[in-house]
Design a protein around this nucleic acid. Structure first.
Lengths: 212, 212
DNA sequence: AAATGACTATATTTGCGATTCTAGTCATAT
DNA sequence: ATATGACTAGAATCGCAAATATAGTCATTT
């Protein structure tokens, strides 16, 4: 038996690059193979279909973004406040350009991958639950409606991811974080509970998406 | 000389209805005439082209929305605070369904009407100026970056107008208004300066768009 | 003068065969 | 056992002519 010499991650790297450049609708299997420096046949030794490959890319990008968000939160002394958690999560998402493409395509042939209304709604419900948890910890102002806050932030996040605004994305994220700091953060000094809740949340997402 | 018996506003009403129902791309001159209960020829006695007619509709809808926003602000005892001004302006915009279509169409044949990047940017600059004015009046927290705040609110507003979210629009507007109340409003009790500034702003827009 | 609606010229859509592209295969090579 | 890349089948796109839809006109009517 000969050990496989082509690492799967080389393929996923190449695919993620091309998705970032061309969008999900524009990636070709030939191009992925060429970018990865392997023959097209290898792709089909690792993945049954194109869709499966792209799904693996999305999963891995989500994992990488989640890991990044954990890093950012852990490194920030006030990382457990809602405004910081929010800002770090958005920043982490934007650190993976391939993921942004999910928001930017008008619902291409690759239907299964784009976040349809249902998935967006599901994610929003997660957001609502997370906000409620932070309210129980005293991290988020208790008198805010978690549903509405989650829906509004989802709306804003989608709009941000979908376009390239003239004002820098970083400035927009910082500005929104500032609003959250004023409107949502409670005054509590110890936000370690928020950090813990967030890390647990992100790790759950990671283990759910990670390949076995 | 016979006085014209067909009032132009009947035509504009019919057109606005149809735009709300079908979008700008879906309106036909025949349909407008039928809905207005007049012959198609009348449309061309009042407007040189279809585009001119649609432009007149947009102008009038903007005027009506502006008038409505003034009403809402005037009727509200705290109407001069930023959070209320913001909420009332958004509510007034959403009271004219034809206007929302401007945000919902993927840039149809009627190019001239859709708010292209340039117009959106121009409107945003107006927003920035208005926020700065409110800051000078002590109505808006002075340490907020007006540029970034305006850009973020424009982003949110576009996203809200572009889709029909499952959470009621009213709830989203109220929720965002609440965030603004916490994050942007200063504590000042007398917000009449804000009211005045807003009304002047809206009236300028009205006289700019109103037919002579 | 004002309004009508049948009419026309033009733009848009449709149908469809020819052409091009690309996901997926597999005989061959390492 | 892995990897290769020429090859194929089917999908997507293109070109274009026929069919349809619609903005705008104008002779006629009120």
């Amino acid at each position: 038996m000969v050990r496989p010499s082509v690492d799967t991650s080389v393929i996923l790297d190449a695919a993620a690059q091309l998705i970032a450049e061309l969008g999900f609708g524009g990636v070709r299997m030939d191009a992925i193979a060429a970018r990865a420096g392997v023959a097209k046949g290898v792709l089909y030794l690792r993945f049954a279909t194109k869709e499966e490959l792209l799904r693996a890319v999305v999963d891995r990008e989500l994992v990488l973004a989640s890991r990044r968000s954990i890093e950012l939160v852990e490194a920030d002394p006030h990382g457990g406040s809602f405004s910081r958690l929010f800002g770090h999560a958005v920043t982490a998402l934007h650190s993976r350009p391939a993921l942004l493409r999910l928001y930017q395509e008008p619902s291409s042939p690759l239907r299964g991958l784009a976040p349809d209304a249902e998935r967006v709604r599901a994610r929003e419900l997660l957001g609502t639950e997370f906000i409620r948890a932070l309210q129980r910890e005293g991290i988020v102002a208790a008198d805010l409606d978690a549903d509405v806050l989650a829906a509004n932030l989802t709306l804003w996040n989608q709009a941000l991811a979908a376009q390239a605004p003239h004002v820098g994305i970083d400035a927009l994220v910082l500005g929104m974080g500032d609003l959250m700091a004023r409107a949502v953060d409670t005054g509590v000094t110890d936000t370690s509970a928020g950090k813990r809740a967030f890390v647990a949340f992100a790790e759950a997402l990671i283990s759910e998406r990670e390949r076995p």
